[in-house]
Design a binder for these strands. Structure first.
Lengths: 207, 207
DNA sequence: CTTGACAGCTAATCACAATTAGCTTATAAT
DNA sequence: ATTATAAGCTAATTGTGATTAGCTGTCAAG
């Protein structure tokens, strides 16, 4: 891995733990294994490092979606897969989603960093909302619209179904970001959540 | 209002916008209308100001719960009120809850501050989880257990019902913290969310 | 009246963090 | 072989931020 890349990684790790302004360039350098002034051979300022992290993540965004076996924004392609909502396919899906976002090193660090910096300016606010609220809701909504249309679920607004499905997962995710020791508990809750979600929304009623 | 109190207020405002380490004591002083060194007549360090904010909020915690017409941790007392889940009492409840937490100046600033600082140490992590995840869930759960028992709702795990009810509200709340301009949209979603929540969980079925 | 505590101020101090200057070495292309 | 470039280093520089020293005015208690 190139030094430049190493700098981005270590910087993100530190920013994710303590936030941009609490981290000093010396620490980033030390983590990389060089001295502070050498950072300036690769980036013109501390702010520039931060910006580069954002740029990198913007270009990684689609790759990330691909890393799950989902199509990111374009959920139409995935919907048929979910249509086979037999038994706990839905449960598995939700849990995979949760596990991936929680454990993927890059995704997880980036999310924590954005959590800390989200109020800093409106670009970051919008980015956070897009990544962790809007896009997932649009995606899930598409899926549920499809399932509803094919008769698997009762007739209900797919946007609200998406909210019902995703919000608890989101809440557990942010909880595990700050308290990783509660992952087990979170998984348990998510599993029950999805089972009950399926129960109340599926046409036949209970499992 | 005493200067000491003003310092705490202004400091919290700034910490909520930009986080502890990005704010310098001079700014706090300026917001209060004094010079930086004068702060030290009231607090022995910048960190001490932060700690005092936490202390203050700990002692305000119960008052806050009282400000809503709820009993904080002890939901047993409130449950009967909710038992009359006729029509949109539930909707009103949820929306009031949302509005209060979003607009109350103190509650809102404190939440943002804690959002930024939550990863700083485990005490803050626990505090965040308690305030915005665990306590609300316990509270809601108690309510739903009661409603279920009195036959208003289908038989389902009240913990999961609480999660279903609260998580979307929580997600919209944190969204509005970073994008206040989306409040209308959030309220709309919450209203539909609760209506649908009631529809799927109430014994009779639809509205 | 006067005195002491309080709360403010200006002018240091002290540390440290970001960045720049300028030197060195390795390496890869000419 | 030579040389230009990249990437590292040490030693400034510069700015800023937290905190301390020490002075001053106010005001309530004696």
């Amino acid at each position: 891995m190139t030094t430049k890349q190493k700098i981005l990684n270590e910087a993100m790790t530190l920013f994710a733990e303590r936030g941009y302004s609490a981290v000093c360039v010396g620490e980033i350098a030390e983590a990389v294994g060089i001295k502070a002034p050498s950072l300036y051979k690769h980036f013109k300022s501390k702010q520039d490092i931060f910006n580069a992290i954002l740029d990198e993540m913007r270009s990684n965004y689609d790759k990330q979606a691909a890393a799950l076996n989902i199509n990111g924004n374009k959920a139409e392609g995935d919907a048929p897969v979910f249509a086979l909502v037999s038994e706990d396919v839905l449960v598995q899906m939700g849990i995979e989603l949760f596990r991936f976002f929680l454990h993927d090193d890059y995704a997880s660090k980036f999310r924590k960093m954005l959590t800390i910096e989200q109020f800093h300016n409106s670009e970051l606010s919008m980015l956070y909302s897009k990544q962790y609220v809007d896009d997932p809701l649009v995606y899930q909504s598409t899926i549920f619209a499809y399932i509803s249309a094919s008769g698997g679920f009762i007739n209900a607004d797919p946007n609200i179904m998406a909210l019902h499905f995703y919000a608890p997962i989101y809440m557990m995710l942010t909880m595990c970001d700050r308290q990783p020791e509660r992952e087990k508990e979170a998984l348990q809750l998510i599993e029950e959540h999805i089972k009950q979600f399926r129960a109340v929304y599926s046409k036949d009623g209970q499992t």
